[in-house]
Amino acid sequence: MRTNSLILILVTLLSFSAGAQKFITKTGHIKFYSDGAVEKIEAHNRQVSSMLDAATGQFVFKVLLKSFEFEKALMQEHFNENYVESDKFPDSKFIGNVTNIKEINVAKDGSYDAQVDGMLTLHGVTNHVKTKGTFEVKQGKLVGKAKFTITLADYKITIPGAVVNSISKTVDISVDITLDKAN
């Protein structure tokens, strides 16, 4: 009985400790940029949910595709209807790890290089993504920044024939998130 109580207390304390290592946000920013022959395409999403478990390195972000904002309404329509088909595939997510999490001291202010490795799902297709970024620890917050490039064909996103030569076949993705310690 006494042993069981001790185990329960230990598990509770460990759970609390693990919880204290989690950093979250729901207002992360993802930008995508495509520099085509005729036109540059840029869109922003500032409603990105993200979580980093600083104890294990698990790193997740989720984004709703309809939340990407374009300067031009027509581009936004085409993005949702013809490219990512957001009615059919409403969200995109990344599930992976910061593989060098042990080198990031979340208790000490400073800038740390981060190596991120995981699986990105977009348009119903999941591919491996590996990139480098930074985490800046500042007053208990983690500011994460990373850039990577995806090829539209890898996610079975087809460019309509009429504009195939004027739109880039790759898209640069920039991630900029400020994570707060979870309660």
């Binding site: 409603q47 709703l64 939340s67």
Partner: peptide
Amino acid sequence: GICMGFNDSDIIFD
């Protein structure tokens, strides 16, 4: 507002 969808945690309105 405009309902953007459900990301398995939240329903997002913009």
